[in-house]
Simulated assay, not measured.
Amino acid sequence: MIAVKIVALFLLPTCTTNALSSIRIGTRPSKLAMVQAKKIQQLLHDAIQANDSTSSPIRSEIVPIDAAGDNNSPVAASQDVPLAMKTVDFTGALDDALTDGTIDVAVHSLKDIPPSNRWKDDLVIGSYSEREDPLDVLVSDECSTLAGLPKNARVGSASIRRQAQLLSHRPDVKVVSIRGNVIARLAALERGDVDALILAAAGLERLSRSESNDSISLPYHRIDADDVLPGVGQGIIAAVCRKDDHKTLSLLNFVDNRTSRITAVAERAFLNVVDTMEHEWPGRPPCAAYMSRDDKGYLFRGVLLTPNGTKKVETSLRIPIKCSTSEAFGLGTKAGRELREKAGTSFFVGAG
């Protein structure tokens, strides 16, 4: 369902404006998604102005489109081990709108984009934003660490990755599958449905910096990557377009961050490999990958777990700073294959 359009004008450089009179930027209508779409819109405006301030202005429109993941019940039914075995689709409606030509660009949190083998063949990630804080956070009034959670605490999350890593450290906690957008999850905590939440730091920080920051009143505390490794692409905003839309691809190139592209390509290559492992539930297996940059180059870390956190395999690899995207892809693929081999064919048997 397409909602109200928010319109802004910006200038496109001469090299991309041939037969291009407007660009429609699709997003989910949630507060966080709108903040992210406006960020991409502003990045495009600023980058284009810096490259060419003489070309004719064209119109950019932000087009909100409802996503299935926003419409799920905020709190799912309890289970003995209430893991998020059901997929949450935050991207499908937007991707469909791209394919049928309703929009020209879809703005996604990169972590929400499915692995390549389960994504649309006609779409491509045209730009990656500069990565913000990739870590997860514990949202709680009462405690600041996983170790500090009360015994049998109810912790909300819709992410099988977060749930598996949490249970690996704290098998006593009761994981409650919280669905819906970030605001809905925060509301569930305030109602007392759960004792704490685990969310992405970047999303909360983007909301806090937005004009509508009154919804972030609860304290949150960063979780070290040694305890909960971030999700693939977490902290990066992806701008997606059709592969054959060369004018839009050229435009998105102005706001593409090379470091983010290198790390994202490696992390998604890892995901593509481990996602093919046989498991007994829909969606991706509980896996995490994070590639960071330091003075020695890039450090890639990957982990694969069973949903209940009782089994875990992990790896770490390095690559020089001056690497290509193809080399980054090769690194991520190698890491995925390494964990697939370590896990063996029976890793997930009986885990779902």
Rank of each mutant, 00 (worst) to 15 (best):
L123Y: 06
L123W: 06
V124Y: 02
V124P: 03
I125N: 02
I125G: 02
G126N: 10
G126M: 06
S127W: 08
Y128S: 04
Y128K: 02
E130C: 07
E130M: 12
E130T: 15
E130W: 03
E130R: 14
E130H: 12
R131W: 01
R131D: 10
E132L: 15
E132V: 13
D133H: 05
D133W: 00
P134T: 14
P134I: 09
L135Y: 12
L135F: 10
L135D: 14
L135Q: 14
D136Y: 14
D136F: 15
D136P: 01
D136T: 10
D136C: 13
V137R: 03
V137S: 09
L138Y: 05
L138H: 02
L138R: 01
L138G: 01
L138T: 09
L138E: 04
V139I: 12
S140R: 03
S140E: 08
S140C: 07
D141H: 12
D141E: 12
D141T: 11
D141P: 00
E142D: 15
C143N: 10
C143T: 15
S144C: 00
S144F: 00
S144T: 10
S144H: 01
S144I: 00
T145V: 11
T145P: 00
A147C: 02
A147Q: 12
A147M: 06
A147E: 13
G148Q: 11
G148P: 00
G148V: 09
G148N: 14
G148K: 10
G148H: 05
L149P: 00
L149Y: 10
L149H: 02
L149K: 01
L149S: 04
P150C: 01
P150R: 12
K151A: 14
K151I: 13
N152K: 13
N152P: 00
A153D: 07
A153T: 04
A153V: 07
A153G: 09
A153N: 02
A153E: 06
A153L: 08
R154P: 04
R154H: 06
V155G: 05
G156Q: 02
G156R: 05
S157I: 11
S157Q: 08
A158V: 09
A158G: 15
S159R: 00
S159N: 03
I160H: 03
I160A: 03
I160D: 08
